[in-house]
C-alpha cells in the first residue's frame, strides 16, 4: 500500500468486515425500510423521550449499521413506543417494529 502520509487514529477505526451483521440482517427482515433510512432526523426531532434523554432512532439506525448494537440499544432504552417517529418518517420505516425487534434480539 502506498504511504500517502494519512493515518486513521486507532480509536476511530471501524472495520465493517469485522462487524457482526446479524442485527442488520434481523432488522432488515423485520422491516426492509430500515435500509432506506436517509438519516434525515425527523424521528429524533419529534421524539418526546428525546426532550429528556439522548433518545434517537436516527442515531440508533446508524449505530446498528456501524455494528455498535449496544449503543443503539442504549439510545432506545427510553423509547415509549408512542409512534411519532413512525408518523413523520419520510421513508415510511416501521420504527416501532425495528425498536421492538432490536430489543427482542438482545433479550433472547
Amino acid at each position: 500500500m502506498i504511504d500517502f502520509g494519512f493515518h486513521i487514529t486507532p480509536s476511530g477505526t471501524l472495520n465493517l468486515d469485522d462487524v457482526d451483521q446479524k442485527t442488520v440482517d434481523t432488522l432488515s427482515r423485520a422491516d426492509y425500510g430500515f435500509r432506506t433510512c436517509i438519516a434525515c432526523g425527523s424521528c429524533t426531532a419529534s421524539c418526546p423521550a428525546g426532550v429528556f434523554s439522548e433518545t434517537s432512532v436516527r442515531q440508533a439506525i446508524l449505530s446498528v449499521l456501524n455494528g455498535k448494537d449496544e449503543k443503539a440499544l442504549r439510545l432506545l432504552s427510553s423509547c415509549m413506543l408512542c409512534g411519532k417517529c413512525l408518523m413523520v418518517c419520510p421513508r415510511g420505516i416501521n420504527t416501532r417494529h425495528l425498536i421492538l425487534s432490536l430489543q427482542k434480539q438482545f433479550e433472547g
Partner: peptide, 27 residues
C-alpha cells in the same frame, strides 16, 4: 424487554388548583 425511563420527567404545571388541565399527548 428492557427499558429505562429514569431520565423522563413530567413536571407539575403551576397554578392548576381547581382548574381544567389540558393534556395534549404525543400525537
Amino acid at each position: 424487554l428492557p427499558f429505562d425511563y429514569s431520565a423522563l420527567k413530567s413536571p407539575v404545571p403551576a397554578g392548576g388548583e381547581g382548574k381544567v388541565m389540558y393534556f395534549a399527548g404525543c400525537m
